[in-house]
Design a protein around this nucleic acid. Structure first.
Lengths: 247, 247
DNA sequence: CGTGTTGTCAAACACTGTTCGAGTTCTAGA
DNA sequence: TCTAGAACTCGAACAGTGTTTGACAACACG
C-alpha cells in the first residue's frame, strides 16, 4: 500500500500506447480523430444499440461520409476493439486489500456487471476480445497484488483473469441477446417459461423423478442471483487454492 | 388405372424424359422437410463455417431457391435453434454414479467441449440459446441424479446447469471467433502474443511490479488447460457445498 | 512555385435476411 | 373424373451491410 501516491488505478493517461496500436498519424488537431470516432460510436451504441451502429450511421453522427472513417481506423472490428477498451476503462479499482480478497473480488465482479448494464450492448462486442492496451496492465496488476499475498498461485491468478472476463462477458452477452430481440419468441418470456415448466412436470415420473421435483428450482431466482452464484462458486474454488499448505 | 387397356400413344409415363427436357425437379432430390433442411444447414456449417451459411447457400445445397426455405422455417434464427438442438443430442451421458460425481462432471464437460470442437462453429450459435426440447429434460435429470446424492443442494444444482452451459458455450465461442477470422489481426497470433508480452514487460517497474513478473504465466498453457481450469474451479467450489454439514 | 502528405467522399461491389406475388404441383372431396 | 384449395416453389426486389477505389481538395514544406 503506497500512502502518498493518490494515483487512481484507472488512470492510464500517461502510459504510452503499445506500438501495434499507435495512431496512424499523430496530427495535432483535426475535426476527425480516433477519439472523436470512438466517442461517437459509443454514443450510437448506447442509444440505439449495436445493431444500428453501422459505418454509415456512424458517419452521419460525425457529419462525415462513411468512407472517411476508414482513414482513421483499419476496419469495423478495430473500431469495436477501441470502443471496448474505452468501456473497460470505466472500472474503478479500489486499492487492493489482500485481507479482504474475497469481498473485493466480488465487488470487482459487481462493478463489471454494472458497466455492462450501463452500456446496453457492450457485451455483444466483448466476447472474443481482451483488452490489449494499458487497461490489461492495470487489471492484471490489481488482480495479482490482491491475490498473490492471499497465497494463491501465480498460474491460478493468471487463468482466473481470463475466466472472470469470460464469465462476465458471456453472462452479459446472453442478457443483451434476450433483451435485444423482443417478440422473437412468440409467447412473452414469462409465459414461455411457464410452458417449459409445465412440460418438465408432465414428464413420465419413472424416468424423470428428479426433474419433476426440481422444476421450480430451475426457474427460481433472478438474473442477479444467478450471476452472483457463478462468482461465488469461483471464489469458493479459489479459497481451496489459498488454503493450500504453503508450497 | 386400367392395366389391360391398350396404352395410348401419348402415354409416355414410364419413359424417361430426354435430357433437354428433363424435369426441372429431378425425382432423385429429397423432398424438402425441416429434417432435410437442418441436415443441410449443419453440413454447410461444419464444412464452410457459419459465416458462409446464408439462406442462398443453403438453398443451393438443397437444390432449391432460398425463398423456399421460408415456407418450412420461420426465419434463420429458428433454423439455427433447430441446428443447435440437433447438435446437443450428440451428447452421450453415462449412467450417473454419485460416488464419482467429480470425475463424471469433468467427463461431461469434456464431452461438451468435444461436441463443440467437432462442429466448428456450433458455439457461435449456442450462446443465448438453451435446448427447449427433450434434451433439456435428459440433461437435467442426469445432473440431479448425479449431484443430489452427493449432498449438493437443489438450488445449487439448478444454477450449475445454467452455469456449465454458459461456460462451455462461451469458451468455445471465443475459440471459434479466433479461429474463424484468420488474418484478421495483421501479425500471426503467436507473434502478436509476443508483442503483448514484451509490452507488459516494458511497463514501469514501480507501478507494475507483479505484472512484469507474471507476464509468462498470463500466456502460459494451452486452450485445453484453460478450459480444464475453469471446470476444476467450479468442481472445487461445488465440493464446498457437498462437504456442508447435513443441515 | 511545385510536390507530397493528409484527409474526405460519392459511387460501386458483393454480400446479407426477408418479403411478395405469381406460378406450379399435389390432394381430398363431390 | 373433375375441380377447389392447400401445399409448395421461386425469381425479383428491398433495404440494408462492410469495404475498396479513385478522384479531389486542403495544407505543409523546400
Amino acid at each position: 500500500m503506497q500512502e502518498d501516491a493518490p494515483r487512481p488505478w484507472r488512470d492510464t493517461g500517461d502510459l504510452p500506447d503499445p506500438p501495434w496500436r499507435a495512431e496512424r498519424r499523430p496530427s495535432s488537431r483535426v475535426p476527425l480523430t480516433r477519439q472523436a470516432i470512438v466517442d461517437a460510436a459509443l454514443r450510437v451504441m448506447d442509444s440505439e444499440g449495436v445493431d444500428r451502429l453501422s459505418m454509415r450511421r456512424l458517419g452521419e453522427e460525425l457529419g462525415v461520409g462513411a468512407a472517411s472513417i476508414y482513414w482513421h481506423v483499419r476496419n469495423k472490428d478495430e473500431l469495436l476493439q477501441l470502443v471496448f477498451e474505452r468501456i473497460m476503462e470505466e472500472a474503478e479499482l479500489p486499492p487492493p486489500d489482500p485481507s479482504r480478497w474475497q469481498e473485493q473480488l466480488g465487488e470487482f465482479a459487481g462493478q463489471m456487471r454494472a458497466i455492462f448494464s450501463r452500456h446496453r450492448d457492450a457485451a455483444r462486442i466483448s466476447l472474443g476480445r481482451a483488452p490489449t492496451g494499458p487497461v490489461i496492465a492495470v487489471f492484471t496488476e490489481w488482480l495479482f497484488s490482491l491475490l498473490r499475498p492471499a497465497g494463491i498461485p501465480d498460474q491460478v491468478i493468471a487463468y482466473l483473469g481470463d475466466l472472470i472476463g469470460l464469465y462476465v462477458g458471456a453472462f452479459a452477452f446472453e442478457e443483451s441477446l434476450r433483451a435485444g430481440s423482443p417478440g422473437l419468441q412468440d409467447p412473452p418470456p414469462g409465459e414461455f417459461l411457464d410452458m417449459v415448466k409445465d412440460y418438465l412436470r408432465s414428464l413420465p415420473e419413472d424416468r424423470f423423478p428428479h426433474t419433476r421435483q426440481a422444476a421450480d428450482f430451475l426457474f427460481a431466482g433472478g438474473r442477479d442471483d444467478r450471476y452472483a452464484f457463478g462468482i461465488d462458486l469461483m471464489i469458493r474454488g479459489l479459497k481451496t487454492f489459498a488454503d493450500q499448505p504453503p508450497r
